[in-house]
Write a protein that binds this DNA or RNA. Structure first.
Length: 663
DNA sequence: CGGACGCTAAACACGG
DNA sequence: ACCGTGTTTAGCGTCC
């Protein structure tokens, strides 16, 4: 029964993932599928609105539409907020996720990940962070403005609405939040730009799609194409100019700028304001007052029309105006495009809200930890705990600013909920256990969730965290209970499992000690044991790749490597600060170097990667181990050495070395 | 399908 | 006799 439940849980995890993936997939599919009709449908839709409101002035119409859009956005927000983890109405969720997709590669990748690879919060964060860092450097200024604009808009347009609470963070938080948001936006936009650049050429065909699904699936990324697709020769009209005067114009401008590569500094004013307070007005004013030069119009820049998807070349402003009036008059198409643009903005707003939420969660996690109620009171205090509380505290927050967001939804972890088995999958991916652990330390500690690691991994972790790298069975038990709420129950079961694992795996060596017997880890064996499959596994690799983006891949991979060789290393954060220092040395030695625990602050934790088999690692480990053991006064670690040295172990014989062979 | 793994359960042996 | 520690074996499930 236990097994069953376990497998079930595990299964649930994957399904959840798939769910996400499917969502995105659907969104995508919707987009492409609708391609054929999208333009028509969308256009019609928009047209319908326009028609129905035909009596309104363009400005009013637009305003009206915008309001509607905002409302929708609000709804989305609410839905998202409420339905973050609850199965809610699929549609809304889908739309939400669809919206998210463009937001970050990480997220996207997450969706693509295999079930097992659900990015753990930290992992996700890591990815985000890395990406953000990258983008930040390049586009911070630029996007800052944009974000501000959105923010402003949002605030302005929403009557101090529901979002308030979120924004009601402390100043500090706000600042932090904004930064994060900006970064995220940067990243998002960067992606957009990249994609756009690559896709622009595709335009017509692709453009076709999404309008219809826009409300839900539209992602900024699609816009360019959308625009293009829709952008059939326009109908004559005369109000286009007026439109610009509307908020919408601002919106559109904003969106446009989003869509367009940063390099193309839109006349829009995106000159970075020092204080980062580019208001729509400001930008507008700037542009308008800018001068009479051709580039003074928000929609005009670099000699071309910036109307989404247009890019028509205009020699001067006059010509541009003319172009605007003719090509982008207040007609169905333009209206539709405006709508799209509004939606884009909405999406961004939604995203913003979402990210804000996330940030809050993060903040809460990082800063409120102390006050956080712990479901299970402090675990049994460990009698022989080397690191009393240490384990991760400070490091976690310090080292990983961006961390686990979710105790609630930890990727796979949460899924395991109660089931007993983490399965191989977990095993495979759990080598980076330290990272994962470090980052979700609090979560696991408090949540009755089965950690996605194998017993062997956990045991190893427990042992390695010790300065001496040796623990008595009881200490191991204590570590388990201390680190995981989950193990505060069913003691009989997991303890038995622990013992079983200790006995079963050669990587765990029992050493007679003065005060009894202690267990140590034979890294070499451990590495050996884990099939390098991970590395070799096409699937895994693929997943990794798909799941990781940009530098994340490297980082995570490195982390994985480091981890595999030595968990602690890769994640000093995992250790408590104090203890970390103690441990680090060891690990460093062992690892052979990772002195720097990945700047990623461990956040770069990769999805549970299986520990790559790195021969040298093994070696490294081996050595230290030996030496240590030998030298260790109180700790007689003879046995392990022997095996390491090369003594024929029964078990060893059985297993074939992957070739990582230390030598 | 089979092998490798992982998990749980359980039987046994030993020593305190 | 009981308990904690270790060792083994068996059955099952998952993944490749």
């Amino acid at each position: 029964m236990m097994v069953e439940s376990a497998s079930e849980t595990i299964r649930s995890a994957p399904s959840g993932q798939n769910g996400v993936g499917s969502l995105s997939g659907q969104a995508d599919g919707g987009g492409s599928g609708a391609a054929g009709t999208a333009s028509g449908g969308a256009g019609r839709d928009a047209a319908g609105v326009a028609d129905s409101n035909g009596e309104m002035s363009p400005a009013e119409l637009l305003h009206f539409q915008q309001q509607q859009a905002l409302q929708v956005a609000r709804q989305f927000l609410l839905q998202q907020a409420s339905g973050l983890s609850s199965p809610g109405n699929n549609e809304s969720k889908q739309s939400a996720s669809a919206v998210q997709v463009p937001v970050s590669v990480a997220m996207m990748s997450q969706q693509m990940l295999t079930p097992q690879q659900i990015l753990s919060p930290p992992q996700l964060q890591a990815l985000l962070q890395q990406q953000q860092a990258l983008m930040l450097q390049q586009l911070q200024e630029y996007y800052k403005k944009q974000q501000e604009q959105l923010h402003l808009q949002l605030l302005t347009q929403q009557q101090a609405g529901k979002q308030q609470p979120k924004e009601a963070l402390g100043n500090k938080q706000l600042a932090f939040q904004q930064q994060l948001l900006q970064m995220q936006q940067l990243q998002q936009q960067h992606l957009l730009n990249l994609q756009r650049q690559g896709l622009v050429s595709l335009q017509p065909s692709q453009a076709s799609g999404p309008l219809q699904t826009l409300p839900q699936a539209v992602c900024p990324t699609d816009l360019p194409q959308l625009w293009k697709g829709e952008g059939a020769p326009g109908q004559p009209a005369e109000d286009s100019v007026r439109q610009e005067g509307l908020d919408l114009a601002g919106t559109a401008a904003t969106a446009t700028s989003f869509a367009s590569p940063p390099k193309v500094s839109p006349p829009l004013s995106h000159h970075p304001l020092p204080n980062g307070q580019p208001t729509v007005l400001t930008s507008r004013r700037d542009s308008s007052s800018h001068e009479e030069t051709p580039s003074s119009h928000p929609l005009y820049g670099h000699g071309e029309c910036k109307w989404p998807g247009c890019e028509t070349l205009c020699e001067d402003l006059g010509q541009f105006i003319k172009h605007l009036n003719t090509e982008h008059a207040l007609d169905d198409r333009s209206t539709a495009q405006c709508r799209v643009q509004m939606q884009v903005v909405q999406q961004l707003e939604i995203q913003l809200a979402k990210e804000s939420e996330r940030l809050q969660a993060m903040m809460a996690h990082l800063h409120m930890r102390p006050s956080e109620p712990k479901p299970f009171s402090q675990p049994v205090t460990v009698s022989a705990d080397p690191f009393p509380d240490g384990l991760v505290h400070p490091p976690t927050s310090a080292a990983a600013p961006v961390t686990p967001l979710r105790p609630p939804g930890l990727g796979s972890a949460s899924l395991h909920g109660g089931g007993p088995a983490r399965r191989r999958s977990s095993d495979k991916f759990c080598s980076p256990i330290s990272s994962e652990l470090a980052q979700n330390h609090e979560f696991y500690k408090n949540a009755d969730v089965r950690p996605p690691f194998t017993y062997a991994s956990l045991i190893r972790q427990a042992i390695l965290e010790t300065p001496d790298r040796q623990l008595t069975l009881n200490e191991i038990y204590n570590w388990f209970t201390r680190m995981f709420a989950y193990f505060r129950r069913n003691t009989a079961t997991w303890k038995n499992a622990v013992r079983h694992n200790l006995s079963l795996h050669k990587c765990f060596v029992r050493v007679e000690n003065v005060k009894g017997a202690v267990w140590t880890v034979d890294e070499r064996e451990y590495q050996k044991r884990r099939p390098p499959k991970m590395t070799g596994s096409p699937t895994l690799v693929k997943n990794m790749i798909s799941g990781l983006s940009y530098g994340a891949l490297n980082a995570s991979y490195q982390a994985a490597l480091a981890e595999s060789s030595f968990p602690l290393l890769s994640n000093p954060s995992m250790l408590n600060p104090g203890s970390a220092s103690n441990l680090l040395p060891l690990s460093q030695d062992d690892t052979g170097a990772p002195g720097e625990p990945l700047p990623s602050n461990g956040s770069s934790s990769p999805p549970r990667l299986s520990p790559p088999q790195y021969s040298h690692q093994v070696q490294v480990k081996e050595e230290p181990t030996e030496a240590e053991e030998d030298r260790r006064p109180g700790a007689p670690l003879g046995p392990p050495n022997a095996s390491i040295v090369g003594p024929p172990e029964e078990r060893d014989l059985e297993e074939e070395l992957p070739g990582e062979e230390l030598s």
